[in-house]
């Protein structure tokens, strides 16, 4: 698995380690936060992609990581083909939305033709983890194992200086985009009639009762999978201009999404966002200070949380 470990710190970041003046300390800290923004939005979307299915339909599905992989590769290919080095924000957003729709479609198809028939969580985990192999096999045939890149959006959006830090605008774009998606999702869940149906069938609600009250379980589950697939694919598309797409990145996505759920708890949007910040910033700091432990740090955080609060910091105890 040729996995690219992405160093999200761009050139121009002030050297860290020997700064004593308080102002510079603050500036360094801010630079960590800014540099963590892409990782944070990546984690938010991926973890919620997994979390959403787990919370609403009580099912475990690892397919999202495969859809993330597809999202990243398709964005790179389509972006390079249609836009090339010419970049316009609107068309990039259009590509992202199209990729999101593609992800939703894949997710629904996989659910309807396959995942629907899996009966227990154990079966779901094994079967969907095998599906991940299918996804990466298809990617390997289509794109090969060498990493592909499409960095036009990242480069063309320019940089801006915030509080003494030079930050690529794309970071803000990515964070804003994911935040808007999450807010839209929260609005949908908590302010609309359809959202109520979703919450009624969730782990917090009572599925049998909801069905008696006339909620169509199949439609709710299908839409849940669609939203999950959309989030995963868009996460892939948004992260691709920074990191490119390479064979085997789905493992990383799976790892971060799952650890975020362990830390944040099932079914909490706020918990997912806060955890994404904790893990994202911790990763950026270790990537600079102790690159060796970059992937270990999310795991260490998750282990510590498991010992102290087994159901996650913001999580409730669900039996699913």
């Amino acid at each position: 698995m040729a996995q690219t470990i992405i160093n999200v710190v761009p050139e121009g970041t002030p050297p860290v380690g020997h700064i004593f003046e308080s102002q510079q300390m603050l500036s360094t800290f801010l630079s960590y936060i800014f540099n963590a923004l892409p990782m944070v939005s990546y984690i938010i979307m991926l973890s919620f992609s997994l979390n959403f299915i787990l919370y609403i339909s009580g099912r475990v599905s690892l397919t999202f990581a495969g859809i993330y992989l597809v999202g990243a590769y398709v964005t790179v290919s389509v972006g390079t083909y249609f836009l090339g080095q010419n970049f316009s924000l609107l068309s990039f957003i259009a590509i992202l939305l199209a990729v999101g729709l593609l992800g939703a479609a894949i997710s629904i198809v996989v659910y309807a033709t396959f995942e629907r028939f899996l009966k227990t969580d154990v079966h779901r985990m094994i079967a969907t983890s095998s599906l991940l192999m299918v996804f990466s096999g298809i990617i390997k045939i289509q794109w090969g194992t060498t990493p592909v890149t499409y960095s036009a959006p990242f480069l063309k959006m320019g940089i801006s200086e915030v509080l003494g830090n030079i930050v690529p605008n794309y970071y803000f774009f990515m964070f804003g985009f994911s935040l808007i998606l999450m807010l839209a999702l929260a609005y949908f869940l908590f302010r609309t009639a359809w959202g109520l149906r979703f919450r009624a069938t969730s782990l917090d609600g009572d599925r049998t009762m909801a069905q008696v009250c006339g909620v169509n379980q199949n439609i709710v589950t299908a839409i849940t999978f669609a939203i999950s697939g959309m989030l995963a694919a868009i996460a892939g598309g948004l992260y691709a201009p920074i990191a490119g797409a390479s064979y085997g990145i789905e493992g990383n996505a799976l790892l971060l999404a799952a650890l975020t759920i362990i830390v944040g708890g099932v079914g909490s949007i706020g918990g997912a966002v806060l955890t994404a910040f904790i893990i994202g910033i911790a990763r950026v700091i270790t990537a600079v200070e102790m690159p060796l432990f970059e992937l270990a740090i999310p795991f260490i955080i998750a282990s510590a949380v498991l010992v102290v609060r087994p159901y996650g910091i913001w999580g409730k105890e669900f039996k699913h």
């Binding site: 493992g251 990383n252 799976l254 790892l255 799952a258 650890l259 759920i261 362990i262 992937l295 999310p298 795991f299 998750a302 282990s303 498991l306």
Partner: peptide, 8 residues
């Protein structure tokens, strides 16, 4: 997933 995480 913790098993997967540790291997990674």
């Amino acid at each position: 997933v913790m098993g997967i995480a540790v291997t990674m």
